[in-house]
Design a protein around this nucleic acid. Structure first.
Lengths: 212, 212
DNA sequence: GAAAATATTGTACTTGATACAAATTTATGG
DNA sequence: CCATAAATTTGTATCAAGTACAATATTTTC
């Protein structure tokens, strides 16, 4: 049944990876909208149907690691010290991300090119927005759960929306700084400054609720 | 050349309206994704090409009055009393919207059905998100202009993002309240409460900037 | 090695969208 | 009022994403 390391499993993983690699390369080189799925299939020496088998939508070929980020958020909140307000936890988490240049807070030529490719494609931009909204929903649910509310309530949704929006703005600002070729740590500084201000604003919004 | 009220102009407007009406009706009745453009063309007794002539994308058949809302925002900021901070202006504007049940703050069965149709369609949801981002961009530009900054700076983008995000959350909450068949004014109350809290949070974020 | 399970492929089809030429309708100038 | 210019509408052809479903090939299991 399961067969973790069987030939079949390995081959599947290999083809999947091959398709993804070929696709990413083509996208970064020529732009998402100028590469057809047929072409990717051909380049990866696989049938068109197989591509859609692994990646239901074309956009999934470009974004294939969203799940990790949301796991990180979930874990941070679940494992926070007893009695700590969720917003405080997130605040520390963001600090940690920036210090270690992890996802959401990594500003390099590679990430700049990645997001440039996204910005140049309406389809990818739409998918990025969709992921943002999914992240908000997810965070709202986790937040509500963290304070023993069964369903995400209005406060949780407000908190989640604000934090994710702040992340988006701060990250964009960090990238801008990076592209302007400012001194190395400058992007991180810009990012953190916006996040810090945002968190204090969000704390104000949520005063009197169990979230802040 | 111009010929404002000529036969041609009138016919154009009539066909455009006819197409839009037919389409909206079908969408609300059967869902956006279950109605093809070909079908709309047939129902409107017009060729498929003509539909795409007036409405480049299918989604435009459903959202055809976004421009008005952004004009309203622009006007409010441009015409604000001398010396008033932009955020304060927006705060009053939102109060006014809620009092008069205007766009962004209107909670009726019709608006509920409208947004339900949007939520049921991936394509419409994507377009709504896109419009949200366009609104943020627009507001950021207006805000920066209002304090004599040539281009939207980081503060303006943060302010715009936060205000529009707050509007989204507050509006969704208002709709939820409406659908729960709470007393008439309840939706407006929920909406305003979230907006008020959000504005005070945003003011905290922007302390020291010319926006708040 | 045969049978079952699962991947892969091929074919056909639907739909949104674009390009471009042909045909129709309205406007205009003598 | 007619010829012609301008603009609108239509038809045809084409492309790409995505889905449905059957046919084929490959791996696993017994």
């Amino acid at each position: 049944m399961s067969n973790q390391g069987g030939l079949r499993e390995r081959k599947k993983e290999a083809t999947r990876q091959a398709i993804s690699d070929v696709a990413t390369g083509l996208f970064l080189e020529r732009g998402f909208d100028n590469v057809s799925v047929a072409e990717i299939a051909e380049s990866a020496e696989v049938s068109r149907m197989t591509v859609f088998n692994y990646f239901p939508r074309k956009e999934d070929l470009f974004f294939d690691r969203e799940e990790e980020s949301r796991q990180m958020l979930r874990a941070a909140i679940a494992e926070r010290p007893a009695g700590e307000a969720p917003i405080a936890t997130l605040r520390k988490l963001v600090q940690g991300l920036a210090d270690r240049a992890q996802p959401f807070a990594k500003f390099t030529d590679a990430t700049a090119k990645f997001w440039r490719t996204v910005a140049d494609s309406p389809a990818l931009s739409a998918r990025a927005r969709e992921m943002r909204d999914e992240l908000i929903d997810d965070l709202a649910t986790v937040l509500a759960g963290a304070v023993r509310r069964p369903l995400a309530d209005a406060d949780a949704r407000l908190a989640a929306s604000m934090v994710v929006t702040a992340l988006t703005v701060a990250y964009a600002e960090g990238l801008r700084e990076h592209k302007a070729r400012k001194p190395a740590a400058s992007a991180r500084e810009a990012f953190l400054q916006i996040m810090e201000r945002s968190f204090s604003g969000v704390a104000t919004m949520l005063k009197g609720t169990p979230y802040a």
